[in-house]
């Protein structure tokens, strides 16, 4: 079984996680830029973070046989801090990089005017750079936030097929299905969505345009949730091909729209002399 986790924050995870993910079948990930537990207070903090998503993290992932790409953006929460607004001016040069396959995570957190401005500006950047967009939907007031999100996407004129609306649940999946955007589901140990509810949604809405992720980060989360969904799908009567569509071909099709998804180079080994562990110089 091959698994592509389309949304996971590996920066916050250990090398043990990479090992367990590989053993579970994970061969590719996309790491979107987001907030850390501690709010950032200056643009330079973001640039070092972006550089890590373009440099150290893919290098680390490759040691464990996993392809790492990223999505870059100013996230909604920190878009509210005027000290971080300068990130928007730096993004255009970052969006040219080879391993950037989307703009994200963008969207709403607290539904402020600042969040909306950053969201709209970054939808425009995505169009200028021919990149798809990963949109975070708010945890609080989710249904209203998702409705507003879809309005902003529509107004921006970006084709829905180039937009992934994430962190959906039973209350929000219907409107996104109708919009033509891709539907993302974050499977968490105790909030958002669990494997059984996920499989019920796959039965109801089908497997097209559906993506499943662990969104694992520095909070309570589990990078193997993608594999659990695959197992529950099989137990519920879905076939191997359905599993492959949801957990591999759909993310490949969505991020492949960037033209930059590179899954060719041997996923079984990193640079020859680097072996299987990160060497400490």
């Amino acid at each position: 079984m091959r698994i592509f986790d389309p949304h996971i924050h590996m920066t916050s995870r250990t090398t043990d996680d990479y090992q367990r993910m590989h053993a579970a079948g994970v061969r590719a990930v996309v790491e979107p830029a987001f907030w850390l537990g501690q709010p950032r207070t200056n643009v330079g903090s973001f640039l070092d973070y972006f550089d890590a998503l373009l440099g150290w993290e893919p290098y680390r992932a490759a040691q464990y046989g996993i392809h790492h790409h990223c999505a870059l953006a100013l996230n909604p929460k920190e878009a509210n801090d005027p000290r971080c607004a300068g990130v928007l001016a730096e993004l255009p040069r970052y969006l040219l990089k080879d391993s950037v396959v989307a703009v994200g995570e963008v969207g709403y957190d607290s539904m402020t005017a600042e969040e909306e401005r950053a969201f709209e500006a970054q939808l425009a950047l995505a169009q200028e750079n021919d990149l798809p967009v990963l949109v975070h939907t708010p945890h609080r007031d989710k249904a209203a936030g998702t409705r507003r999100t879809l309005d902003v996407v529509r107004a921006a004129g970006i084709p829905p097929v180039r937009v992934l609306i994430d962190h959906l649940n039973e209350m929000t999946v219907g409107m996104v299905a109708d919009s033509g955007c891709w539907m993302g589901f974050s499977i968490y140990p105790d909030t958002k969505m669990d494997p059984d509810r996920m499989v019920a949604l796959l039965k109801e809405y089908g497997t097209d345009r559906m993506l499943v992720n662990s969104a694992a980060d520095w909070g309570r989360s589990d990078p193997l949730k993608t594999r659990q969904v695959a197992d529950v799908m099989l137990a519920a009567g879905f076939g191997e091909d359905d599993v492959d569509q949801v957990l591999w071909r759909n993310p490949v099709a969505f991020y492949g729209q960037s033209g930059r998804l590179d899954l060719a180079a041997g996923s079984e080994a990193g640079p020859d002399y680097a072996g299987n562990t990160i060497k400490r110089g």
Partner: peptide, 9 residues
């Protein structure tokens, strides 16, 4: 100064 073997080499 990096930990990337490709860059160090």
């Amino acid at each position: 100064r990096t930990n990337d073997a490709r860059l160090v080499a």
